[in-house]
Design a protein around this nucleic acid. Structure first.
Lengths: 250, 250
DNA sequence: CGGAACATTGACGATAATCAAAGCGAGTGG
DNA sequence: CCACTCGCTTTGATTATCGTCAATGTTCCG
């Protein structure tokens, strides 16, 4: 299966073959978007129900002092405005972090699919739950972990989420965030990010060069992060896509 | 209307009279729970779809070093585990912060109500969106605001959310959080909370005694917080319950 | 080759954490 | 009614994590 959105949803709830067909149909005609492109809700880039099929993007808010906080990393298969009534999220903008393929699914089509296929509705609801769980975990991360732990946790999260959609090659994966981006995800400054990244490298936990992240010691990195993938685990019943992510106490 | 859950949902989507009747029926027989009581998902306190009708509670996570981070304040009308598949949220526990009235609505009943009344389904989805928006705002709060701004923002949020369900008397409202609780909401230490609370008092922005919060200067407090209630505003179309909450840039 | 974006380094400063003790206030029991 | 306790708040002194400022390197790309 090459469609990350499909993979996501089928991890969220079991989907029958014809339901998969319906979703594939909805995902025809993706558009290519370059990196570092702002996607405003009002612009023509985002209408209806936008989904990333490949690439990374981020939702963020800007404060009046100019500070930016990224509130969500959008990985392949993620929906931009899952939670949308059009006006409600006007505060949050989206920017691509790498070249992306994006489909805009008309809301009407999505609604029709959900009506005809309750399993799709269930999958969507469960997907929403996962978004929620990630948001909670970010609050915990930024609220109660120090800089090193935060970085480690984010890396574990990214790795796990990507692994569920075949976005990893073993412990290696595409990681397009600049240090400035990382700072805005983790609520730190770029300078501090730089230093903590170096610490992770010196402790032989990771490698990061040309947007290529390699986790050298996953167990230890998870240990540092206090990472437990349970909150991200597929809710499908059948799967074991997690590949041995474990029960490190949060 | 005396049922906070109804109020919430009718702010989320317009509900017809008979739909309100259905929901009222579901909310019969609430249970009284004392303050500072842990409500574990496994225990018999929480099954099905629990909703707070009165009182305050909080969802939180404990880290392995013993640190606690509160991830959600549950005010009257809020659902505990809106996002629930039973096992998924095992990491997060709930504790009451004041005496509470809680109803456990059987999932089957809720599902039936949603099937028969699409407006209820829509209201629930919109409610979920609002939860999401609050979580995002907390990430921003903890990630990019300093201690004073965070406190101010939380107070504004609480005041606004309560005002939507008639939980305020003007600028005055019940605020049961101890300084330890506040610390765990805002990702700070109790000592620091104490000092910043005093600062807010000295600047004549608030008063807080015996769990009674009074905002002395709402405009100024919102200014300090960079608070803009738009993300919490009713999505109902008709309402103006906001009572003049304004467009301070976030 | 030249420039722009990104990464790295160092020196210094500020916000918030830590540690420890004392004060307060409400409810309890003698 | 008063001492007593327990939870919560307040205060002070000290420390540390992280932020700020500014300069220098590096990588990538046309």
């Amino acid at each position: 299966m090459h469609n990350a959105f499909l993979q996501r949803l089928s991890h969220a709830a079991p989907l029958a073959q014809n339901e998969i067909g319906v979703l594939e149909e909805l995902c025809r005609n993706p558009r290519d978007i370059p990196a570092k492109k702002y996607l405003s809700r009002d612009g023509d880039e985002i209408v209806t129900f936008p989904v990333i099929l490949s690439g990374w993007a981020a939702r963020y808010q800007i404060l009046r002092n100019g500070a930016r906080q990224i509130t969500r990393l959008l990985l392949p298969g993620d929906a931009f405005y899952f939670d949308s009534s059009p006006d409600a999220v006007a505060i949050e903008e989206v920017i691509t972090l790498s070249p992306c393929q994006i489909v805009n699914i008309p809301h009407a089509d999505m609604t029709r699919a959900i009506e005809r296929h309750p399993a799709i509705g269930e999958a969507m609801r469960n997907y929403g739950c996962m978004e929620n769980a990630i948001l909670s975990s970010w609050v915990v991360n930024v609220g109660r972990r120090d800089a090193l732990e935060r970085m480690a946790h984010l890396i574990c999260e990214a790795h796990y989420r990507l692994s569920l959609i075949d976005g990893t090659q073993g412990e290696q994966f595409f990681f397009p965030l600049t240090q400035d981006d990382l700072a805005d995800v983790l609520g730190l400054t770029p300078v501090h990010i730089n230093r903590k990244l170096q610490q992770l490298r010196h402790e032989r936990l990771i490698t990061l060069r040309s947007k290529q992240m390699t986790i050298l010691n996953l167990r230890e990195l998870q240990q540092v992060a206090g990472f437990d993938g349970a909150y991200l685990a597929p809710r499908n019943g059948d799967k074991d896509a997690s590949g041995g992510f474990g029960a490190i106490a949060a």
